[in-house]
């Protein structure tokens, strides 16, 4: 088991994972998050010194969606400026091609998000306080909700940002109709190839029986070979990636649920996670992820563009928060 910690002033995120079967397709080992613990200082409604939230990767995905979406939704819109005429809202999104980014805001119409499915929700309480409804993360000891200050909320986004930047995030296993639709082309190809091979093997076996030639009766090994081919094809196609995702910094096994572990029941209605929306589980850490739908039109190459944080790129000279401890290089850590 591998444990990673991300720390900011008032909270610590601890993620625990283990080696994934995806490692066979990569030059570096891939680890899959199995559980997380989040320690928040002075966040309890009862004034407890520390609150500990724990859960699995689906719940972490939901919590991250809720927090990041809420923070994004709370940023000051242009229309707040006195005297400034608001724009028609539809154009502000569709004209820029940000439909995928809209999933970052679970509090604004994303009723089928992982956060919504888990009942995780943030609500403002005045200008500086925030109520985090824990939903599926609620326990008897911490209750159904906790209060967060703005600084605590910021620290939470810090550790989530650091975690995202250092992880290749495999999403929770999909099972919704929309996710199936998205996966259909990839699985369809590999499935068709696997089916064709199986048919060929079956036909060969039948013919061998028909002609009494026992040398053809090797279906077990042939079947395992076809499975290997099917897996390989699936991995290659997944590695080719879906360029429609807005966050290429976290290559994830969007199309590889078969290679992952069993689905978490709580993810049954989950949609693809924003934080796991990237394409390449077989990418090595040394290879920059393939840029995809990216909200910055870039007309000239810039040496400052960081493949890990492309929206927008951070300057190379920008200091990292001193308190954060990102994932060390050399690992691919999948939540």
């Amino acid at each position: 088991m591998i444990t990673q910690r991300y720390t900011s002033s008032t909270c610590t995120l601890e993620v625990v994972g283990r080696r994934s079967a995806l490692s066979r397709w990569t030059t570096a080992p891939v680890f899959r998050l199995t559980r997380f613990r989040l320690y928040l200082s002075n966040a309890g409604a009862t004034g407890a010194d520390q609150v500990q939230i724990r859960g699995d990767r689906t719940q972490l995905t939901g919590l991250m969606e809720a927090v990041q979406g809420y923070v994004q939704s709370r940023l000051t819109p242009v229309t707040t400026a006195p005297g400034l005429e608001p724009l028609p809202s539809p154009s502000s999104r569709t004209a820029i091609g940000l439909s995928d980014l809209a999933t970052s805001d679970p509090n604004h119409g994303e009723a089928d998000s992982t956060a919504a499915a888990l009942g995780i929700l943030l609500q403002p309480q005045g200008l500086t306080r925030h109520r985090l409804r824990l939903g599926a993360l609620a326990t008897d000891s911490i209750g159904v909700e906790i209060q967060l200050s703005t600084l605590q909320l910021f620290d939470l986004t810090q550790v989530f940002d650091e975690y995202e930047a250092g992880a290749i995030a495999l999403p929770p296993l999909p099972s919704t109709a929309s996710r199936r639709r998205r996966l259909t082309p990839q699985i369809g190809w590999s499935g068709a190839i696997a089916a064709a091979i199986l048919v060929a093997v079956g036909l060969g076996t039948t013919l061998s029986q028909w002609f009494g030639n026992r040398q053809f009766q090797s279906s077990p090994s042939a079947t395992s070979q076809s499975e290997a081919i099917a897996d390989s094809t699936l991995a290659e196609k997944t590695a080719a990636s879906n360029p429609a995702y807005p966050f290429p910094a976290h290559p994830a096994g969007e199309g590889q649920p078969e290679l992952d572990d069993a689905p978490n029941p709580t993810a049954s209605s989950a949609k693809p996670s924003l934080y796991a929306a990237s394409p390449t589980p077989s990418t090595t850490p040394n290879l920059p992820p393939k840029p995809s739908a990216f909200p910055y039109p870039k007309t000239t190459p810039s040496p400052n563009l960081s493949p890990q944080t492309p929206i927008p790129p951070s300057p190379p000279s920008a200091p990292s928060p001193p308190s954060a401890s990102p994932t060390p290089p050399g690992y691919i850590f999948s939540p």
């Binding site: 229309t79 940000l98 650091e162 930047a165 954060a324």
Partner: peptide, 21 residues
Amino acid sequence: SGPGGSRRLWVALLERAGTGG
């Protein structure tokens, strides 16, 4: 001011410019 700050600002500018408070 955080590591994801520029992404947040950019998305806020584009996505929320006309949506009101």
